[in-house]
Design a binder for these strands. Structure first.
Lengths: 290, 290
DNA sequence: GATTATTTCTGACATTAGTCAGATATCCTT
DNA sequence: AAGGATATCTGACTAATGTCAGAAATAATC
């Protein structure tokens, strides 16, 4: 069977699905164009110029759609304090509520599909894989508090994976869990890779007196193979330079051969054991140029 | 992380993708409505009434779009010989060429996504899973020649799966491969389950003098758990009645416990070995009421 | 400070999409 | 054969979307 036949089927299936979602959006009594603008603003695209680019709309049309949403009382448009030509759109309270209603419609449709499927986790994994493949160009790496729920979520998946891959399992309490303060500025940092707001990877820099440690490097299964690890490691190194930490170390385990290979590939030197943590058996360091 | 957040991300990713595909369709100088009609006809939806239902179009609009395509010389609309009220749309040669161009655009986009992905087979499997989940209501079961490429494709996957699951592997040459003629009317039949044209399962009825045998029951991994096996078995039984074969038998293997459980569930009785094929070790029969 | 570029907004207009009410021909049922 | 239902088509209309040109304000450049 031709691979393209499968993709055509996928295209048609999602096209119909998107069509169904769009017509359910119409039930809220607003044309699709306005609904799309409202949703884009709700998702944080306030900048009118970016909005126009993201939705590929003519400036005249954009302007009229915003006037329409304003007269509905859902949106206010303010001047950009940094550039008097630009304007910024914000949702009013009513606009927030309306945006939430659109999210609810979309969620209801999603929950319906999910509930009918025999293997929900397989379906979610497939959706993640495809969403990542389609939005890979737009994955962004942002700093984040190590106690943020999104960070905790990544770490939970990271620990679960270690537990599955280490022969004797993995108990985070036996390992030295870094203090959150060591992974926050000014001592260190915690980075998340976000694909359209969903975390698909993380990495931490734990500051120290003699050297800083790279910890918790993890990529979601759906996002592997996209070169995300390199992006994260480069961002970590940039953050380390920023913080004046030029001597980096990390530890890992032979049970994770792709990690070991990766550190070699990224210019890390293998060194002797430098701590007594029970899990790692491979140790690396890298010295950065300022 | 909330499952719905993942689905929202998926929704947004495919919405954007569908939007991009639609605007590439516009490049062919024809409004989207006409393009959708042309594509639906090209995919075999000639019946104007079905076309209207599939695309959810008003009869007036449909009529006008067809007139437009006719005046472009892409489509001819004929009377339905079976029902004078109905009409049937067909692509002219120019229409076929134009349809092929749309397919090419869609394929190019698909190939682009596929080529950028590190694990193409995982991406295809994910697409299959989702397409099946979204179109499960529209899976149709149709008779098909056992030598049709789509049938052969299913059988190849079926044999590969047996080879993986049987301890000593599976060599189709050691098993009694039924003659194609025994799986064609008037002796037997071969059924395919099609989801938007892509085969996602099959089952065969091999006619015989004393009894007919059910063979080659297979469901694609992406389509499992949807109750497709029951649909296929019911269709096989209906075909058997049609052909006057009321005594059915089948053989299977303990290495396929879900198949064994299924036959019990569907009212088959386990019986003694009735052939000397080396692979099966479980044997069933079922007597149908006329 | 003059010139050029950028951003938003408005007006005028064209195209596309969607809706509704008949008209006509045919089919189905009794 | 009559009456009701169905499928398509046409005309008349409305709403939505897309396009273009230019005005006004501000920013960037020289």
């Amino acid at each position: 069977m031709d691979a393209l036949a499968h993709i055509r089927r996928f295209n048609r299936a999602v096209t119909r699905q998107v069509g169904a979602l769009n017509s359910s959006f119409l039930d809220r009594g607003r044309p699709l164009g306005s609904a799309r603008v409202l949703n884009a603003i709700g998702r944080g695209q306030g900048d009118v110029a970016k909005l126009r680019q993201a939705l590929a709309l003519d400036s005249g049309l954009m302007s009229r759609l915003l006037r329409g949403l304003e007269s509905e009382g859902l949106v206010v448009v303010e001047d950009d304090p940094e550039d008097g030509r630009r304007r910024i759109a914000l949702l009013t309270e009513a606009g927030q509520a309306e945006f939430a209603e659109y999210e609810r419609l979309s969620d209801a449709q999603a929950a319906d599909i999910l509930s009918r499927h025999p293997d929900q986790s397989a379906l979610l994994a497939a959706m993640d894989l495809i969403a990542t493949a389609l939005t890979r160009a737009e994955i962004e790496i942002v700093p984040c508090d190590p106690l943020d729920p999104r960070a905790r979520d990544c770490l939970a998946q990271y620990y679960a994976e270690l537990a599955a891959r280490f022969e004797g399992g993995f108990d985070v309490n036996l390992s030295k869990d870094p203090e959150a303060d060591d992974m926050r500025p000014p001592r260190g940092t915690f980075l998340l890779a976000l694909s359209d707001g969903v975390p698909v990877g993380c990495a931490a820099l734990k500051g120290g007196a003699d050297y800083a440690e790279v910890k918790r490097v993890w990529i979601a299964p759906a996002a592997r193979g996209l070169g995300l690890a390199r992006q994260l490691m480069e961002a970590i190194e940039a953050a380390a330079r920023e913080l004046g930490q030029l001597h980096l170390r990390l530890d890992t385990n032979s049970a994770l051969p792709e990690a070991v290979a990766m550190y070699h590939r990224f210019g890390w030197d293998e060194i002797d054991r430098f701590n007594d943590d029970p899990y790692p058996d491979r140790f690396f360091e890298k010295r950065l140029n300022p």
